[in-house]
Design a protein around this nucleic acid. Structure first.
Lengths: 240, 240
DNA sequence: CGGTGGTTTGATCAAAATCAAGTGAGGTGG
DNA sequence: CCACCTCACTTGATTTTGATCAAACCACCG
């Protein structure tokens, strides 16, 4: 699949775009780069003149407190442009780092601004993508602010399953997810030790099997029930 | 101050707008409405065809879990358009409610879309506002995911003080903030009882005095130190 | 075959939740 | 004008959740 096609597949989950829009996106100059796991894409404090499209692999956005605690803030996958915001926010306020070996596509701000001016529908779709990301943050806040450990983990996995399903990245209930239990802990605001105990509980309850590089969901219903997960906030349809 | 001026004051904290842009904003039709404290502005699940500008007073955005726990997600004040997102997200995923008696201005989506088309710089400024809100969510996640109770409260108050200062809403270190300790607890992911103990600790440490309808900051330095607060993420300058 | 990064488990501790019972100020109706 | 009510705040006692500390374990890799 060509690089722009990943972006198009992603945008078409939540947006209605016409052929001319798709053609304009396909014509976008994209420079490919292959990255090792753990590579920094942007750092807190950076200024940049390009956006990074995740073609293959995963990336985490995170912030670190003064006393060295890391919080993962978002998880990005094929088709996401996690730093689309850099188009209008000039100094990055969080770090972005690959979680896996990854292929990314770099798109210059100038080209994106040109595209936005020529194709207002695409501009709206991109704005909308940033708003969906914000909606995901809102739910993330509720997850760690008002849910217990078990529910937090279930809710996060349910979200990832939902997003990956819409992109066709799931085969027989197995997410090809490169998350260590340390990452999981940093995403849901727990310690690794406690995250491990939660994972164990979910495994023993027959809900999921969580391993390095793979999460297998055994009982979707139960997973959503434990997490209190309702996918509305992902706005995964042009009508929502 | 006219309604549009509140919006302009707010936008000019983070954006550079030229006189023609300001004139276009001033020309925007805005219908005034006065609301009692606790009025619902939009509900989860709503579809709407207008955006709400907060002219005077405060509003909270919140979500409630299946088991009835409320999490406050954002706090809005004079000049904010908290549901600007509704321009591109069609179904609301959170509730928005006034915290005080408030004056709001309603602006139709059609008028906003027209403005965006005529004045691309204004469109960019509005997009940027939604991105700053997202940045604020990111920090909110870190606050409740990776900070202790004392630090959470200090960090939130430091943020509000910073934002209100830039809008000129603070007089001799006193924020005219209509927050009960229940609200505070729901914002930082604590129980009201524990929030109260934290407030007491901060008062006894000579950092702040927190009362219904008023927070007085006695030691800004200490407040920021306890909260680990760094205002970069608020992007409160056109350069950031 | 030893190292390393990730996972697992147990024991103990600390932070915050929960339960319970006041206090106190402001607002309303008799 | 007082009595009472309500909403917010406060405090103490106890329990729970998750953190911390410590030690294996395990699989993959060079």
């Amino acid at each position: 699949m060509a690089h722009a096609d990943r972006l198009i597949r992603r945008l078409c989950v939540s947006n209605r775009l016409d052929p001319a829009d798709l053609a304009a996106i396909t014509a976008l100059p994209i420079r490919e780069r292959k990255l090792d796991p753990g590579s920094v894409i942007v750092q807190e404090g950076d200024r940049t003149d390009q956006c990074c499209l995740i073609v293959d692999g995963f990336a985490y956005r995170s912030k670190t407190t003064d006393d060295g605690k890391r919080q993962i803030i978002s998880i990005h996958m094929s088709g996401d442009i996690p730093d689309l915001q850099s188009l209008h926010l000039h100094v990055m306020d969080a770090e972005l780092r690959t979680a896996t070996r990854a292929v990314v596509g770099l798109i210059s701000h100038d080209d994106l601004r040109m595209l936005n001016r020529m194709r207002p529908t695409v501009a709206e779709a991109l704005w909308r993508e940033t708003l969906i990301e914000a909606a995901t943050y809102r739910e993330w806040i509720v997850r760690i602010g008002r849910r217990q450990a078990l529910s937090r983990v279930a809710h996060l996995i349910a979200e990832l399953a939902e997003r990956m399903t819409k992109l066709g990245l799931i085969e027989n209930d197995t997410l090809n997810l490169p998350m260590t239990q340390y990452d999981l802990a940093d995403a849901v605001g727990l310690t690794p030790v406690h995250a491990n105990r939660v994972v164990k509980t979910l495994r023993e309850a027959g809900v999921l099997d969580f391993r390095r590089n793979m999460v297998r969901i055994l009982d979707h219903e139960k997973l959503r029930a434990i997490g209190g997960f309702h996918p509305l906030y992902l706005h995964q349809s042009p009508e929502l």
